[in-house]
């Protein structure tokens, strides 16, 4: 599916021995992973496996208790301008009276600098990004008044204006309608075609193979990491999900669709 030679040079993300603890309770254990350039990687694992924590730890949003991460061979601080982050929808304040366009414009704040108002060009860039995600009609709508799928598209538009090389997304496909899902998927594929790297936390095992070419199987530790065709098989899933895999193992169809053989 994905040609590994495209990942020439330093990988987009390389994590070594990355560990996170919340109150002495491990949330991520010595994670080792590599996300090749130009890949579309799904980060999957059971609830509480540390999927969001992994992304947050990479972005230094939670205190890391050990290990290191590099992006394109550089530290996060050096590579910050090349990385766009799309947080989980639940993590923001929906009551805040801010319009869709103003949310998208936030993606340009770093470039705009302090003490300056949002410029006309920035507003235009925000408008264009909203057009790209099919939200032209909702530019001035308050973000909290939009539906879940529309909110997700606004967040994606905010990532788009950053013109990043790496997009890290936390559950972009959770709780959205089919239209939004298609819009997001098309956009992601378009970005990858332009050379960007994408990594998403994803909760739906059944659709991993159709959406992503790479996968990180996570359950506190990284169970497997690599091309979907090589890591996404029953043995790994069983290690990742433990006894909870029973509900999937009866569905042989899911594995044939993946193009891999059940052991």
């Amino acid at each position: 599916m994905n040609d590994p030679t495209r990942s020439a040079g330093e990988p987009a993300v390389q994590a070594r021995h990355l560990s996170v603890c919340y109150d002495r309770k491990p949330a991520l254990w010595e994670a080792e992973l590599e996300i090749p350039r130009g890949s579309m990687t799904g980060i999957v694992g059971p609830n509480g496996a540390g999927k969001s924590t992994l992304i947050k730890a990479m972005l230094e949003l939670v205190p890391v208790s050990g290990g290191s991460v590099t992006f394109f061979g550089k530290s996060y601080r050096e590579a910050r301008d090349r990385i766009a982050y799309v947080p989980q929808r639940e993590s923001v304040d929906w009551e805040y009276p801010i319009s869709a366009r103003d949310v998208v414009a936030m993606g340009l704040y770093r470039r705009l600098g302090l003490f300056r108002w949002v410029t006309r060009e920035a507003k235009r860039a925000a408008q264009e990004a909203l057009d790209r995600v099919g939200m032209s009609a909702f530019v001035n709508r308050r973000i909290g008044a939009l539906s879940g799928g529309q909110q997700q598209r606004v967040f994606l538009a905010r990532a788009l204006v950053q013109k990043a090389d790496l997009y890290l997304m936390d559950e972009p496909f959770a709780g959205i309608d089919a239209t939004t899902e298609q819009v997001i998927l098309d956009l992601m594929r378009g970005l990858r075609a332009e050379g960007a790297t994408l990594a998403c936390v994803h909760h739906d095992l059944a659709t991993v193979a159709e959406k992503f070419d790479h996968a990180v199987l996570l359950n506190l530790r990284v169970v497997a990491c690599g091309a979907v065709s090589s890591v996404f098989h029953r043995e790994n899933l069983a290690r990742c999900y433990g006894g909870r895999l029973e509900m999937f193992s009866s569905d042989e169809g899911a594995f044939t669709r993946l193009g891999t053989q059940a052991p």
Binding site: K56, L59, E60, L61, R80, I83, Y85, P87, Q88, S91, V92, D93, Y96, I98, D102, V103, M106, Y109, R110, I143, R158
Partner: peptide, 12 residues
Amino acid sequence: NLCFDEGFVAAQ
């Protein structure tokens, strides 16, 4: 307005 989304702000 950044308090709207603290995670994004911190990441940026």
